[in-house]
Design a protein around this nucleic acid. Structure first.
Lengths: 239, 239
DNA sequence: GCAAAAGTGTTCGCAGTACACCCATGT
DNA sequence: ACATGGGTGTACTGCGAACACTTTTGC
């Protein structure tokens, strides 16, 4: 930094890109928007945009998240948002040098697709096997999915995919979807309940989920953020 | 991104900052440079610098790493370098908007301090309890140290702190230093050897380390990058 | 009654823990 | 001889895997 004239630095554009993930039914889905401008006009891409002059990447990401999901800023403020990594290869944007700070957002099921804000169109698609995406977004998406799957092992973020109150069956469904494996229900249940602060029981009547079967007890996300000992994927796969 | 004129984006300066860590004896140390220019002239800071117009953040980080450590580019190319996260708060640089991509580098002990390249002076200092640093570098350093400690649990990066050939005692010393705890030697040994690809035995004569004691067998870092099951810190502490 | 989902109990094996103990070298 | 660090063996314990079983609902 010492040998540069502060007024002669090479200028870059800085953007944020968001991998907004949700679990719907038994598939992990990602929010994509259709690009309305060149380059990649008409292609699908991760939502994102330029940093404004006076905001941090985190602020920009949360602003974009609220715009693209169509949620109120108050609701969007509570969503789980986490920096993934920064992509800076020259040539990743054909127009100019763009450095992009990528984020992963985990949202509970029902935020309706809605082509909110400015994006031409927006939709949820399965995160595995999206077609080609604009820029290097296929790689960003792959990194995001792998990171989330890895984080499930030693953190409590899985509850970010669940509504405020959820059953242990729903939480297990989230794990099984993200990991793509079946888990033993009794063991999963014990493991979760044995971790202090992972989930908290909700007093009051249980509810039925799909109607059939015994009504399940409801739980809330607890204050814990990490899982000790971790909950490891059956066939330990770490790339 | 759609509503912006490509030629009217807000410009930012982009830098890389490096937390270059090593284990010397029984302390984790970080490489600091003395700033030769305002702002923070005369203060200590993490090494780093601006991105050149045609390089990625990774390239810039490796270039700076070679310059600051004074190692040959060929040697520096083999060092463990990993993106940490990006710091973008407005006001983190008093002059202008600077977005910094931070990296963590792990180097084996003996790369001599050397105030290489352009930095006025450079020195190794204990990573815990450095005085105040320039910019937000105290926070970057803290994030780097915590990340490394966490990675030791489920990856094989610890060998990056060791020379090409090392003893299991040295590897254990690295773990104990980074975690700040004592480990049981027989159990550590079995755990490491039971993980395929973590370390490989070197044929040929054993060597003595400090002279005293039984000569230890030498090992090389193996091809494995992850640890399954993980090697957990005794008092599971994850912030 | 039957299917489906929640919830409980129990057995088994293995991995991590905590040691005791032997080996090889320098002083 | 003894201190120092390397290396091996072993008994105990607790968690996770696997699976049987009971409970409560909708149809």
């Amino acid at each position: 930094m010492e040998r540069y004239d502060p007024h002669a630095f090479p200028p870059f554009a800085v953007t944020v890109d968001l991998a907004v993930l949700t679990v719907r039914g038994d598939t992990l889905q990602v929010l994509l928007v259709e690009r309305g401008q060149d380059p990649y006009r008409g292609d699908w891409a991760l939502p994102g945009g330029f940093l404004l002059p006076d905001e941090s990447a985190e602020s920009a990401a949360r602003r974009e998240l609220a715009e693209e999901t169509g949620l109120s800023p108050a609701t969007a403020a509570g969503l789980h948002l986490e920096q993934l990594r920064t992509y800076s290869d020259p040539g990743r944007d054909p127009r100019m040098r763009v450095v992009s700070v990528a984020f992963t957002a985990l949202v509970p099921d029902p935020p309706e697709p809605r082509g909110g804000g400015d994006a031409a169109r927006a939709r949820w698609v399965p995160a595995a096997g999206t077609g080609p995406l604009a820029f290097d977004h296929v790689r960003i998406l792959a990194d995001a999915v792998e990171r989330v799957a890895a984080k499930f092992e030693y953190t409590c973020v899985a509850t970010a995919f669940c509504p405020p109150e959820f059953t242990l069956g729903e939480l297990q469904q989230v794990y099984e979807t993200v990991w793509g494996v079946a888990l033993d229900r009794p063991n999963f249940r014990r493991k979760v309940l044995a971790t202090p602060g992972f989930v908290e029981a909700v007093e009051g009547g249980p509810r039925r989920t799909g109607g059939r079967g015994k009504p399940a007890a409801l739980h809330r996300a607890g204050p814990a953020r990490s899982l000790h000992p971790p909950l490891l994927r059956p066939e330990g796969r770490h790339p």
